[in-house]
Design a protein around this nucleic acid. Structure first.
Length: 715
RNA sequence: GCGCUCUUAGCUCAGUUGGUUAGAGCGUUCGCUUCACACGCGAAAGGUCGGAGGUUCGAAUCCUCCAGAGCGCACCA
């Protein structure tokens, strides 16, 4: 027996050494597994593409959970003999990364993005991204993730850029990407448009003002934003509203706070007659609903009164004022004119930008969109339908299943996807202009073409992730072997922005699904159930936890009892419990190795020992089944329970008298039994606690492969 | 407004899709320097499974209603 077993298990020195040995062996790469003869060249493939963490800093416990779950499936399948591929990568995360760096520059140097300039800002962001990347990679390795680093990808590298330009061009040619003047979600703080999914609604108290445009205007209207009324072109009422029926179709000229308005009264069923006064002032340029109503009644869209900096552009006393100041001015004016009839306190959910916190200002802007309700040429179906179908048919299975309903519900409400952003970091829109001419996809050779200034929503490139990482648009061997991928594992919070987009993009580009199974994990919360955040200071850093208790312990603490789709709580105490388990395993190794020195593994078992072994065989079946059915939270618990409370507490204890004074045959049988049980237990436990199991197994006489990582799964 | 989830031991959660006395971890109490391990061992206490009905031979599990908690989407003039 190696003398290392005489001291308690030390995870810190062991884990880094073991990872280096695995990496050096090359066995994270399935091609190398085949070359070294540990995997059959014709074995079925199993693949996962890692959800690429944003290069915005360091990994948190949610990432650690993601790595643990995916590594468990990967290691299990690898031991099962599959050609198993897990591709690592990182996400440039456009807006998120740029805003982190911009904030830092503002803080350190007091400068904004335009003081720095496009080129210099990009340089700074790239330096920051590179540093984050290195930190993240080393964190992933610390967690024991058996990722094939030879295939590492970045959403903004050259290969992925080629994929992005290619898909953009194809979608444009298919008529599914268009440039249009639409109301977009403008973030005045970040100075960019954002998509519907990047909005966070915040409930806030607001005042509902009820007033008339002028003394002789016949209808009072209600609004929470009086300043926008300077952009009104009409008033809408419900067609069945008896109070206003006689006014429908009439037109009025008024002067509202120095601004001349021409107001037409229209009837539209969109209006809720029970809200406010039942009459809506229409501001088509600054409200999506109003824009739509104006469309139906042929009213002008062009009355833009607020600019990108949330300042008023009308002449008169409001000119150049911020919207918040303008609101006070309008209210004062209404009061002084005797036009304000009532003020009500109401609750309102305010749209804010998730990255900057800026209050969204709906503005009409010329932007690029993906059209989701138009038939895809050659498919006879819309993108929306193509997103629904594979989940409906079961080709894609979502775990837990109830999220499928949430998914359907979201798709039904889906509108065209605004993909252009006014930021600098990211894939630049691959469109070039020269006068009226436009070229899409590849930069024209001739002089005089100017590229679109905008960049693409980061989810456009991550939507291609399952196939761009496998080499598309090249027709690679990897692509035919590993796509569609087997499992996509991520947090339920990005079901919509990411998973739905991947299905859309893959259906469009490859006529197939990106993955067969979606495993959604919940949020990792602190011991009190609070979200981990910088401001609360309750973040647990996976690196600290791994350093203190070992990555194995951290993985077990994250996985045991953690059902998919449900938020979990984690505390240092829980991790500590599994550190003790690592040590327990270590001591079992010591006992088994000490007591089986001259064991002949081929010797036959006694009747009693055959029974004990068969219980373990049942465990193997159950655990295998649990993993296959995505119940790894249960598989982990079962192995833990068997190892500690059956193997250690019971079997080892009753073996002591046998070794002390049993007959020779009983002793031989028992030695074989313990060695067999422990060897199989290490194999079962390896996907969950890869380091300590590998370290022990290297000293086992049953060792039949270079690493436990590529040893056979027991049956 | 539409939809989803949760409510099980003091705490955090399981309960493999209806089947014998409902489980785990942590915590609590008591006893152990037992030669693998005090990062340990042995024992014990603790739950009418949110409430009310229903289906069934049988319900924590399925159905209906009610109460409480959380979340998503939409609206928000």
């Amino acid at each position: 027996m190696h003398e290392k077993f005489l001291k308690p298990y030390d995870s810190t020195t062991t884990e880094s050494r073991i990872y280096a040995e695995w990496e050096k062996s090359g066995l994270f790469n399935p091609n190398e597994c085949v070359r070294q003869g540990v995997t059959n060249p014709n074995a079925p493939a199993y693949s996962i593409v890692l959800p690429p963490p944003n290069v915005t800093g360091r990994l948190h416990m949610g990432h650690a959970l993601m790595l643990a779950i995916e590594d468990i499936f990967i290691r299990y399948k690898r031991m099962k003999g599959f050609r198993t591929l897990w591709i690592p990568g990182t996400d440039h995360a456009a807006i998120a990364t740029q805003s982190v760096v911009e904030k830092q520059i503002k803080k350190d140097e007091g400068k904004g993005r335009h003081d720095i300039g496009r080129e210099e800002l990009l340089k700074r962001i790239e330096a920051f991204a590179a540093e984050s990347h290195d930190t993240i990679v080393s964190q992933m390795k610390t967690m024991g993730a058996s990722l094939d680093w030879s295939r590492e990808a970045f959403t903004l590298d050259e290969a992925r850029s080629r994929a992005v330009r290619n898909v953009f061009k194809q979608m444009y040619q298919a008529g599914l990407i268009y440039r249009g003047l639409r109301i977009v979600n403008w973030d005045p703080k970040g100075q960019t448009t954002i998509s519907d999914d990047e909005i966070v609604y915040e409930e806030r108290p607001a005042t509902l003002y009820i007033f008339r445009y002028s003394k002789d205007f016949p209808i009072s209207i209600a609004t929470t934003r009086p300043e926008t009324k300077a952009g009104d072109v009409g008033v809408a009422v419900h067609p069945d509203d008896a109070r206003y029926k006689s006014f429908v179709g009439k037109e009025y000229d008024v002067v509202f706070c120095d601004v001349p308005l021409h107001i037409k009264i229209v009837a539209d069923k969109e209006v809720d007659p029970t809200f406010g006064t039942g009459a809506v002032g229409l501001t088509p340029a600054h409200s999506q609903t109003d824009w739509d109503i104006a469309d139906r009644h042929e009213l002008s869209h062009e009355s833009i009164i607020i600019n990108e900096y949330a300042k008023m552009t009308v002449a008169g006393r409001l000119e150049g004022k911020k919207t918040t100041e303008a609101r006070d001015i309008v209210i004062d004016w209404l009061k002084s004119e005797g036009l304000l009839e009532k003020e009500e306190n109401i609750k309102q959910s305010v749209a804010t930008a998730e990255r900057t916190g800026g209050i969204i200002e709906p503005l009409p802007k010329l932007q690029w969109f993906v059209e989701v309700n138009k038939k895809v040429p050659g498919r006879g179906k819309t993108l929306k339908e193509l997103m629904l179908e594979p989940v409906r048919s079961g080709a894609i299975k979502i775990i837990p299943e109830y999220f499928e309903k949430t998914y359907f519900h979201w798709i039904e409400n889906l509108r065209d996807w605004c993909i252009s952003r006014q930021i600098w970091y990211g894939h630049r829109v691959p469109v070039w202009y020269k006068g009226e001419d436009i070229v899409v996809g590849i930069e024209p050779k001739e002089e005089g073409w100017i590229q679109d200034e905008d960049s693409l929503d980061t989810w456009f490139s991550s939507g291609l992730w399952t196939f761009s990482t496998l080499g598309w648009p090249e027709e690679t061997k990897d692509l035919t072997t590993y796509h569609p991928t087997d499992l996509l594992e991520t947090g339920y919070d990005i079901l919509f922005p990411w998973i739905a987009r991947m299905i859309l993009m893959t259906e469009f580009t490859l006529n197939t699904i990106p993955f067969k199974n979606v495993y959604l994990h919940g949020l990792v919360r602190d011991a009190q159930g609070r979200k981990m955040s910088k401001s609360l200071g309750n973040n647990l850093d996976p690196l600290d936890i791994a350093a203190k208790f070992g990555a194995d312990a951290a993985r077990m603490a994250l996985v045991v009892g953690n059902t998919p789709g449900t938020d979990m709580r984690i505390s240092e105490d829980k991790v500590k419990g599994y550190k003790h388990f690592s040590n327990k395993l270590w001591n079992i190794a010591r006992f088994v190795l000490e007591n089986t020195k001259d064991v002949k593994i081929s010797a036959s078992l006694s009747k009693e020992d055959i029974d004990i072994l068969s219980v373990h065989t049942d465990l193997i079946k159950e655990v295998t089944n649990d993993i296959e059915e995505f119940r790894i939270y249960m598989a982990a618990e079962k192995i833990y329970h068997y190892t500690w409370h059956e193997l250690a507490d019971h079997i080892l204890e009753v073996s002591k008298p046998i070794f002390a004074n049993g007959d020779a045959a009983a002793q031989t049988s028992r030695k074989v039994l313990l060695m067999t049980l422990f060897d199989r237990t290490l194999r079962l436990l390896h996907p969950f606690m890869p380091f300590v199991t590998e370290e022990i197994w290297q000293s086992m006489p049953t060792k039949d492969a270079s690493f436990l990582m590529v040893a056979k799964w027991p049956s």
